[in-house]
Design a protein around this nucleic acid. Structure first.
Lengths: 119, 119
DNA sequence: GGTTGACCTGGAGTCGGCTCCAGGTGCGAT
DNA sequence: ATCGCACCTGGAGCCGACTCCAGGTCAACC
């Protein structure tokens, strides 16, 4: 099973090294394994989890809620129903965001058309 | 032509009074007219501009860029081409946001389906 | 004429989410 | 052996966007 250096994880996930350390510090990441010199070595699983984090973050989930999700994951399989609930609620908010953006975009388009007519 | 009290503008725009004052302070709003007692009285035009602000803000435009836009508006009609450019660039970013959210949403859906299958 | 309530000001504080820094370690290449 | 480089730590600092506060004004209603 392969491990990843910090640089590789930065490359792969798009998070900065500082952000990775920050996420570990606040407990969004489990304590990451270390080599003999004390340097981080991320597992495949860590990288997968970071993929989830990225998705949730990029859809606007606040860190506090990602921490709740992380906590559920840590508690094991009996929290899966709760995780579904959390994700579904988040999904609803994502849906709202999309609807909202689409709606606002119409306003922007109208504004642009108006300006075009005026010019 | 009707004027609006602070409370009415709060009601109408959804911004808090503090936010309205903040926007005026930083110059995103023109200095708002006052009655004899020094209290704000917003014009129809102010409220319309606040509608634009809300749209831009809710689609993620940073205040610094809204200030640029406000500045163009103040400079008069010869900046309309620039305003179109600014709005079109913003529109592109809104489009990207929508595409991104839609993409990420698939991931969330997959995750939910996975959990459903596991339960 | 006293109280209430909406408003005013300047300035400080908060919050989320990083981002940066100084000073230090260990390893591989020249 | 010494250099450069990737990495380490704790903690301070930053940025955007508000949000809150103390202390004050004014008009209106009881």
């Amino acid at each position: 099973m392969s491990v990843y250096t910090p640089a590789e994880v930065v490359e792969e996930t798009g998070f900065t090294l500082d952000t990775l350390r920050y996420y570990e510090k606040i407990g969004l990441l489990e304590p990451v394994g270390r080599n003999a010199a004390g340097q981080r070595r991320f597992t495949e699983e860590d990288v997968g989890w970071l993929g989830t984090i990225r998705c949730l973050r990029d859809t606007g989930m606040p860190i506090a809620e990602m921490l709740r999700f992380a906590d559920l994951v840590r508690q094991g399989d009996h929290t899966i129903a709760d995780r579904i609930k959390l994700l579904e609620e988040h999904d609803g908010r994502v849906q709202d965001q999309i609807a909202n953006l689409t709606e606002r975009q119409r306003y922007i388009h109208d504004k642009i058309s108006y300006y075009r007519r005026v010019v």
